[in-house]
Amino acid sequence: MRSHINGKIAITGVLLSLALILSYVESLISFDSVFPGIKLGLSNLAVITALFVSGPVYGLAICILKSLLTSLLFGSMTSFIYSICGALFSFAVMFLLYIIGGFHIPVISVAGGIFHNLGQFIAAVYITKTFIPGFYLFYVAILLAAGSISGAITGFIANLCVPKIKKIISKEGES
């Protein structure tokens, strides 16, 4: 039992470092000239994998640590606020769907991607205090579409990874 928890913590550490690398790779690919603020959200892959392999506590840990560490390494205090808002929004929704049960990983990821964008958008509106109703409706529509596309991509990748990592962990537990 004890070795099982150790295995989960080790996997969480590996996933966290993966999340940091993916965040860095992501910062090199910019969509700012197409539509400002759009990101691939690849690091969400680590959060989803942790949620399904190790459980919600580990998922939340990666979610918070990822935001904190990426901001310390590549960003600033402001980027931390946006990052944590998006990450917590996204995690709350994914956790809810995980608890309800019956949803598959890609669908949960799509929901997470959408709410990540919504969380960041709400943070941006709150911080800049800029609100233009009709114009923002169009922006939100774009954000939802982008969130679901990137969520679907990371979701399908996570769907391939989760069973394999689970298999490795269960083998470790037996020996």
Binding site: G102, H104, P106, V107, V110, F138, S148
Partner: peptide, 25 residues
């Protein structure tokens, strides 16, 4: 996949209606 399909269709409906409304106004 029943729940998945319901959720995804709901999401698509919201996105499409948001685009439609924003282009109308």
């Amino acid at each position: 996949y029943k729940k998945d399909i319901i959720l995804i269709s709901f999401v698509l409906l919201i996105i499409i209606s948001l685009f439609t409304v924003s282009f109308t106004i």
